[in-house]
Design a protein around this nucleic acid. Structure first.
Ligand code: MN
Ligand code: MN
Ligand code: MN
Ligand code: MN
Lengths: 145, 145
DNA sequence: CTTATAATTTAGCCTAGGCTCAGTTTATAC
DNA sequence: GTATAAACTGAGCCTAGGCTAAATTATAAG
């Protein structure tokens, strides 16, 4: 229970929420490019039908999101054809996968079950700062020794 | 780099993203009731102007969100008057604060700076399962010994 | 090669959650 | 007590990201 002067400064607290909102803005993009990259590696191509089923959304929803990703320069695709990552998209996919793996392996390292680690890391990954990520990596290294 | 059969089952992967989307649906509600509860404790009342400035949004935005919270039974307020939590709202505020504190203290325990812990926990808290939370608590206990 | 199926797109709808600008109500100062 | 300032509301706009239903295009089967 906080006492009289226990509230953080308003502008600092606001900055926290603004940062979370910023993270959420890029979240869909990161998850999509990461998935598209995986699909290309494993299947040789990324098709809308697979993106939609793996994202857990309908095809029109995935189609609309992909249109936005194309507008913003992360992917390329011609109508009715499969999806390609731009250089910008590839870079973001690699960064996102790396960060995701660190968060996932960190959860495993501290004793979280594989199932929970898979599920929790999907959301947590977007809210971990560079500083925290470094700490996560240190914990992973210590635990593998 | 994943090889041929490295993709998770589609329906499992979809469930992950669905879970993250569910978390995001309740996120604003949790952050708002937690803040309202804090304001009542410290200031004696929760006013829109403070909610807005601390959430980092404009007053009309906060006003609209609060209307939704009232519609959904988390708060009560009469026009132009301050905001009260319903029993449902108080319960959610307490649960949210507890979880938030655990995530925050966990980050401190593993060596993250106070600043980064404050910032990262604001987003992470909404993506931590009960199982992971228990592991976090264990790490906190071990570190305080 | 034609037909049926699968994949993709388009149109149109919805909610959440941002914003600005303008109006109303409450609180403060004088 | 009245004028001014602060707080709150309302209208209207926007984007993201969900959905369904229907049209279009591409692929597969026979
Ligand atoms: Mn994710
Ligand atoms: Mn919180
Ligand atoms: Mn939060
Ligand atoms: Mn999130």
């Amino acid at each position: 229970m906080p006492d009289e002067d226990s509230l953080p400064e308003a502008h600092e607290q606001a900055a926290r929420f603004t940062q979370v909102r910023e993270a959420h803005k890029t979240e869909a993009t990161e998850d999509y490019v990461e998935l598209i990259d995986d699909l290309i590696r494993v299947n040789g191509e990324a098709r809308l039908v697979d993106v939609a089923s793996r994202m857990g959304v309908t095809q029109p929803t995935a189609s609309k999101t992909l249109a936005r990703l194309q507008r913003d320069g992360f992917i390329n695709s011609e109508p009715y054809r499969s999806i390609f990552l731009t250089d910008q998209g590839k870079t973001l996919a690699n960064e996102s996968r790396l960060r995701h793996e660190i968060v996932f392996n960190f959860l495993l390292a501290i004793g979280v079950s594989r199932d929970a680690a898979v599920r929790d890391s999907e959301g947590m990954e977007h809210h971990v700062s560079e500083e925290t990520l470094k700490v996560f990596e240190k914990v992973i290294r210590q635990n593998s020794k």
